Structure formats: structure tokens, C-alpha cells
Simulated scan of single mutants.
Amino acid sequence: MKKQLSSKQHSALLNTLKTRFEKNINRHKGIDWAKVQAKLEVNNEKLWSLNAMEESGGEPDVVDYDKKTGEYIFYDCAAESPKGRRSICYDHEALEKRKENKPENSAVEMAAEMGIELLTEEQYRYLQSLQKSGENFDTKTSSWIKTPAAIRKLGGALFCDYRYGNVFLYHNGAESYYAARGFRGLLKV
């Protein structure tokens, strides 16, 4: 399957991203939209991934620039864990272990299909630091995060949320899933 947008989708997505970029300058001080757009214009596959983030409710936005690689970094910046990515377990192995009431998918598989990565704990905490006071992410939902192999090997997986003025890191069985838990991703362009 070729991961490419139609010209109409391409234009609509760029317009949405530009509007969000301009509305949320606090997330990307010192980054010039024209340079971001120039990178996006020549990378159809990355645009396709951003569109997948957008369509699933992620509201992607630029949050950083990696000077070493010359890449702009987009995170899902929706107020709550993306609606189109909830009620999923952690990964394929966890999905296969469920005998009854299997969710439709897993966070790791969905991220791979979209061409994005799950946030790490450090990246999740960074995302929370970008919000203005009182506007934190995941105040009603939670998000799976990239789980260290040692924890995953023992059957667990990690997730985070924001409650009581703090970011909390929790663990759960990787096969668990809840209507209020999804995942946030990142994409480097």
C-alpha cells in the first residue's frame, strides 16, 4: 500500500497543521513554520503518517527540533489520549494472549501501521511541560508509553496520565485495555 495523500488531503492537512502551529506558539518557540512546511512538502510518507495521527484524533503539532539530525519532531497534542486509539492493549503479544474480549488492536501495532513511535516516559513528561498552567494533557484519560524490555518481558506495560498537578507513571498487565486509555505518538520529519 502506497502511503500517499491526494492533493486535496495534502492541502487540507498542511492548512490544519499551520493553523495549530500558529495557535500554539508556546510549544515550539524559535521554530519557523515555513521551514517545517518545506520539509513536509518533500516527504509524502511523513505527511501520510501525520494525517493518520490527525484522523485518529491526535492533533499533531511540532514540539521540538533536533539540531543533530535536522528533524522536526511532532507529538500528539490532543487534550486527551487520541479518541481513535483507545480501548487497545499494549502490543501484539498481549493481544494474542487474550482469550476473551479481545480489543481490536494494540498500541505498538497501531503506531507501526501509522509510521509513528510511542512516546517514552521522558517524552511524555516533556509534552506535559509544554502546556500552559491548567491546560495539561490526559486529565481524564491515560496513554500507554514505550515500555522497557525488562518490564515487558515480565508481562507488564507502562502508561501515564496527569492528575493532582503531577504526571503519574503506572504499570498494568500488557493485555489490559480500558475505554479511557490510548497512546500518544511522535513523528520525526
Rank of each mutant, 00 (worst) to 15 (best):
A78K: 01
W144S: 03
A179H: 02
G173R: 04
G185E: 07
E117M: 10
E93S: 11
G165D: 10
F74D: 04
K68I: 14
E71G: 12
S133R: 10
Y72N: 03
K8E: 14
I31N: 01
M114F: 12
T69M: 06
N26T: 10
M53N: 05
K188P: 07
N172H: 03
V63K: 04
K188H: 13
C77R: 00
E45D: 15
Y170V: 09
R85D: 11
L119A: 07
E45V: 10
W144N: 02
S133C: 14
C160G: 12
N43R: 09
K99W: 11
F183T: 02
E80N: 07
R184V: 04
G173I: 09
K102S: 15
L47Q: 02
T16K: 01
D91M: 04
C77W: 00
N15P: 00
S133D: 13
Q128H: 04
I25V: 14
L50G: 07
K8H: 07
Y170C: 13
V63E: 07
T120M: 05
N44P: 05
L14W: 00
E80F: 00
A174L: 07
M53S: 00
W144K: 09
S176F: 11
L158N: 09
M114R: 00
N43W: 11
A34Q: 09
G185S: 06
D76G: 04
E45Q: 05
R98V: 12
A34L: 12
G84Y: 01
L95N: 01
G155D: 01
E93M: 13
V36R: 04
Q128S: 11
E117S: 13
A52D: 02
R152V: 10
N26L: 08
Y170M: 13
A12S: 11
L186R: 02
I151V: 14
L5N: 08
R27K: 14
F21R: 00
Q9D: 14
N44L: 12
Q131F: 09
T147C: 14
K46D: 12
D91Q: 10
W48S: 06
E122M: 01
R163E: 15
Y124T: 06
Y126A: 02
Q37M: 08
A78L: 13
L17A: 00
S143Q: 03
A52F: 04
Y162P: 06
S81T: 13
G165T: 07
I88W: 06
K18G: 02
L17H: 03
E135G: 05
V63I: 15
Y75G: 10
L95E: 10
S7L: 11
K97Q: 13
E45K: 05
N172G: 14
R181G: 05
T141C: 03
S81A: 15
E104Y: 07
G134I: 00
W144H: 04
N44T: 15
Y162D: 04
G156R: 00
L130C: 12
E93H: 01
G30I: 09
C160L: 04
Y75T: 06
E113M: 12
E122Q: 10
Y178D: 13
